[in-house]
């Protein structure tokens, strides 16, 4: 008989205003748009490159992208501060309730939005419902070395801690959950808690301008909480009620 615990819970399990667990602060005043985070993310997470034609169709698979917009016209033209956009790990994520096979689910343990690749059947409902446009879809077998012999050597670099995704699967930023697990595992084996700043995500680790900070938002002592608490922080499309976990610092 089907009891209730067999049905996965959909959506957030915490009320509006409550904190999640992991969060990020990105200082737009410091971000130089140099793409080091994008390269670092792709190398850490086995993100596939898609080539010129497919990227022209908008199929490139960046898990993090740097947005910039123009204001005004020459000579009074200004580029808005660069804004790295990655999965906001919403507390109330629009992608989750629309996934038919429950591949986009909320992790109760880490308070992250998960994408379970083996469940994903590629309906792409989640990407259509994501207001941040941060979910990317594998339109082809970009990682199959039988189709692209170049990958026979390039795949030596793949991170064994991260699944290599295949065609027809949606994917997105995970807040480097493999690093979270590794740090937690190490801390547990040494009988302690994970310290603030002990590990960080690939993007934050690479960022030459130190614009990205990652950590526990439920710990008021952590660096990320203190930065987020400054009065120049804002969250993307917060008015939609998505409870994003990424805070952007604007201005100086």
């Amino acid at each position: 008989m089907m009891n209730k615990s067999n049905i996965p819970e959909v959506g957030a399990n915490f009320a509006e205003g409550e904190q999640g667990k992991w969060g990020m602060v990105i200082d737009r005043d410091l971000c130089t748009g140099c793409q080091a985070c994008v390269a670092a993310c792709s190398m850490e997470n086995n993100v596939a490159f898609v080539g010129e034609e497919d990227s022209g169709y908008g199929r490139s698979m960046h898990w993090i992208r740097i947005e910039r917009f123009w204001e005004g016209e020459y000579p009074e033209v200004k580029m808005t501060s660069q804004q790295p956009v990655l999965c906001q790990q919403c507390g109330h994520a629009p992608c989750e309730p629309v996934c038919p096979p429950f591949a986009a689910v909320h992790s109760q343990a880490e308070q992250l939005n998960l994408q379970v690749y083996n469940r994903c059947v590629g309906t792409r409902y989640c990407a259509n419902n994501c207001p941040y446009q941060v979910r990317v879809f594998n339109w082809r077998d970009y990682t199959d070395d039988r189709l692209d012999p170049a990958l026979v050597t390039l795949k030596n670099q793949y991170n064994p801690d991260v699944t290599v995704r295949r065609r027809g699967v949606m994917e997105k930023c995970t807040f480097c959950i493999q690093r979270i697990h590794k740090a937690q595992d190490k801390a547990k084996s040494e009988g302690r808690e994970v310290a603030d700043g002990e590990f960080t995500t690939a993007c934050a680790q690479a960022c030459p301008a130190n614009a990205i900070t990652f950590g526990r938002v439920d710990n008021p002592e952590s660096l990320v909480s203190q930065l987020a608490g400054q009065n120049r922080g804002s969250k993307l499309l917060e008015e939609l009620g998505t409870l994003p976990q990424v805070t952007y610092l604007n201005g100086g």
Binding site: V105, S107, Q108, A109, E110, L112, L114, V116, Y117, N118, V162, T163, T174, I177, Q178, H181
Partner: peptide
């Protein structure tokens, strides 16, 4: 229970 039954414990 939360930890051990979480999808993200094994799938990422």
């Amino acid at each position: 229970e939360t930890k051990l039954l979480d999808c993200g414990t094994c799938h990422y």
